[in-house]
Design a protein around this nucleic acid. Structure first.
Lengths: 234, 234
DNA sequence: CATCGTCATACTGTTGACAATGAACGATCT
DNA sequence: AGATCGTTCATTGTCAACAGTATGACGATG
């Protein structure tokens, strides 16, 4: 090893993350072969961790593993983006169905606080911190759900396209949509209005998907290097 | 290598399959540690493929990967079963929404033919072949869907609990439910009644989940060795 | 008798090397 | 000239070995 991977929990996970970032940043074009040797050399690790990372990414759908050939990039397309957001609309609404009735008063206070933070950070134009807070909000809202399987699934789906959010990051139209969403969903959650939360979440996901598809250029995706700490939308 | 893994495409996939079967067959209890060395020795392979297999199973949710400790079995519980079926109810209904309108006349003929086969095999008490045909029916119904991501997801979820279907295999109550479902869904699909198909699929999944939960004994799951060719319900 | 520290052991994390297979290229034949 | 075949190289598949860490037992100590 020769880089700064010392503080990361496990090496294969770090490698998987690195490759995933590269894919969503369009470092490799769609259909490109990911050669284990190259990646291993570039990261200063051996091929073992790289292979394991590729298996994980294959299972997650970011690459396609062809026997005796290796991993080829499963590029993002408008269809894929649309599909993933459609899925998330349904699954996250499902999560809310069991989560909202279980929200404690403390949870609700926390949601209100996070909303205030989001608004403040938005007004201060501190986008990155706002994104982090948004995700925290979402996690807080979903956490009480009884369906842990669904929660894991959403997290997995989210990693699958956290480049798209980068595109949306500076889209004022999306920010407006998001702000409205967070305000309304907080109100609905605090009121314990489960079906309203479901509807809001679903609609937000659908519309976000549409915006993402519209903003997507199949070859001019994220020019941002996507630094390790940079959070993502949605 | 010393066994009969010569016919399988790739070694890690075969190992993953072997371990998955072991887990669903309760070869290892919930929370048990899967030692790479043991498995490697038992299968006559090295630790490399075993590690890769465990990463895949970790991503799929069958095991939990603890850094510096290894893989521990993520046992099936009533909650998990219920969760997975609830998810499938929603996702498979979503698939139908885009699949049914795209069914060609050839597809519909094929569905009718498969239904006839299912009924015939059921009357002949050839359960295993019937299960295969049922899954073929489902695949045919879903295939036209535009949402490939969702299709992959369902396949992944399905592998996650293909022990449970074994429990349902000889449950006359479930067979009755299934027969009714396949008859009705065929009719609805042929008629192009999308919402009816959605509703039927969703209900079938929910009820199947309930039956699976009821039939589940957390420690006396599948006594069947689950041979490679054996298909599964749902 | 319970609890804590120490040590041996077993297991995982990672690496480099070897074997086998697929892809690319050039030579040869029609 | 075009197509086919054989050769060479690159890349994946697999393995055995080494290094580092958690685990469990054993004994010392309060």
């Amino acid at each position: 090893m020769a880089e700064n991977w010392t503080d990361v929990p496990t090496l294969p996970a770090a490698v998987a993350d690195w490759i995933a970032r590269g894919i969503v940043a369009e470092r490799w074009p769609d259909g490109a072969r990911l050669r284990e040797t190259e990646i291993a050399a570039e990261l200063g690790v051996s091929r073992g961790p790289v292979r394991e990372a590729l298996r994980v990414l294959g299972e997650r759908g970011l690459v396609r593993l062809v026997p005796r050939v290796g991993a080829v990039v499963n590029g993002m397309s408008r269809d894929t983006i649309s599909e993933v957001y459609e899925l998330r609309a349904h699954i996250e609404a499902l999560i809310c169905r069991s989560a909202v009735p279980r929200l404690t008063d403390a949870d609700k206070d926390r949601l209100r606080g996070l909303l205030d933070q989001i608004i403040a950070l938005r007004n201060a134009n501190r986008v990155d911190e706002m994104l982090t807070t948004c995700w925290e909000f979402r996690e807080t809202l979903y956490r009480p759900s009884s369906n842990r399987t669904a929660l894991d699934l959403v997290r997995s789906l989210r990693t699958r396209l956290h480049s798209i959010p980068q595109v949306l990051r500076d889209d004022p139209q999306h920010i407006a949509l998001a702000m409205t969403f967070y305000v309304r969903v907080t109100q609905a959650a605090v009121d314990g209005d489960t079906s309203a939360v479901e509807r809001l979440v679903s609609e937000f996901m659908i519309k976000t998907g549409e915006q993402a598809v519209a903003a997507f250029r199949p070859g001019t995706a994220a020019t941002t290097p996507a630094r390790p700490g940079t959070p993502a939308w949605s």
